[in-house]
Amino acid sequence: MRTLMRVLCAVVAGAGLVVGAGSPAGAGGVSLAPEADLAYHGYVSMADGRVDVRLTPRNHGPSAVTDATVRLRWSVALADRQSLPGGCARADARAVVCRTGELAADGLGEEIRLAVRLRGAPAEVMLEFETVWGGGAVDGNRANDRQRVLVLDTGDSYVF
């Protein structure tokens, strides 16, 4: 009977979370989730199939974010073997996800640096960035946390 009660309590609590999750506002129309505006700026270059990326996450606020995740997706497949920095992991054949760490309201995060090898040596690649998890915060301005950069195999830096 005790086990059944625990299961029922867990189901009821879970149902409450699901019901509450569909409504961004609580009683009186006040938002229950913190609000943050995440953006990414930096530069990217490519030479001989190696892409170097440096990006700095920024939180325009108004609330701090304990952690967030940014996805970097290339238009071509990555080489099978990669050496990624701590906080970054391979997501699929063309993508890597990286933690931003804590982002103070109206503050900059730590610079994320990574170098990846592409499969082959393409003349150009499209690199897309986007937030895939905002630490539970609501981002009302999704336009500045999604970017696309065309990178040519010239060794030149492209700023975003």
Rank of each mutant, 00 (worst) to 15 (best):
C9P: 09
M1F: 08
R94P: 01
A93M: 02
A95H: 10
A64T: 11
S157W: 05
A143I: 13
V53M: 01
V149N: 00
R99T: 08
L8C: 12
A47W: 08
D48A: 13
G140S: 11
V138M: 08
V53T: 12
W74T: 04
R50H: 13
G101W: 02
A93K: 03
T154Y: 07
G22P: 08
M46Q: 13
G120Y: 00
Y158I: 07
D80Q: 09
E110F: 07
V53I: 14
A123Y: 02
L150Y: 01
R2E: 15
D139I: 03
Q147I: 05
M46G: 10
A79N: 06
V151E: 02
I112G: 00
V12M: 11
A47I: 06
R148V: 10
S31R: 14
R94W: 03
E102I: 03
S83Y: 04
V159M: 11
S31Q: 12
A115L: 02
A25K: 12
V11F: 09
A36E: 07
G29I: 13
N141R: 11
W133P: 10
N144C: 05
A33F: 07
A39N: 11
L114G: 03
S157M: 04
N141Q: 12
V18M: 15
L118C: 02
A25F: 06
A105E: 11
F160G: 00
L32V: 14
G155Y: 05
Y158D: 04
A47H: 09
A68D: 02
S31Y: 07
M46R: 01
T100V: 07
R117T: 01
Y158H: 10
V11A: 15
T66M: 07
D139H: 06
G134E: 05
D153W: 00
V18K: 07
A21C: 10
L84W: 06
R146P: 11
P62G: 12
V65W: 08
A39H: 12
A47M: 07
G107M: 10
L78C: 09
A68L: 06
A21E: 04
L114A: 00
L118E: 03
A15M: 15
T131C: 02
G28T: 10
D106S: 12
T69L: 15
D48E: 15
V65R: 04
A95L: 02
A95E: 05
A13C: 13
Y43F: 14
T154E: 12
L127S: 06
G140V: 04
A123P: 11
Y158E: 14
A21S: 15
G28Y: 00
G140K: 09
W133E: 13
R117D: 14
V125D: 07
G136Q: 06
A105H: 05
T100D: 07
R58H: 13
A95Q: 03
T154P: 04
G120P: 08
A47P: 00
A25N: 12
G107I: 08
G101D: 03
A143E: 13
H60T: 05
A89I: 02
D37M: 01
V125L: 04
S157F: 02
D156V: 00
R90N: 08
C98M: 08
A143L: 14
G134K: 04
R2L: 12
M1D: 14
A137Q: 04
W74P: 00
A36N: 12
G109L: 01
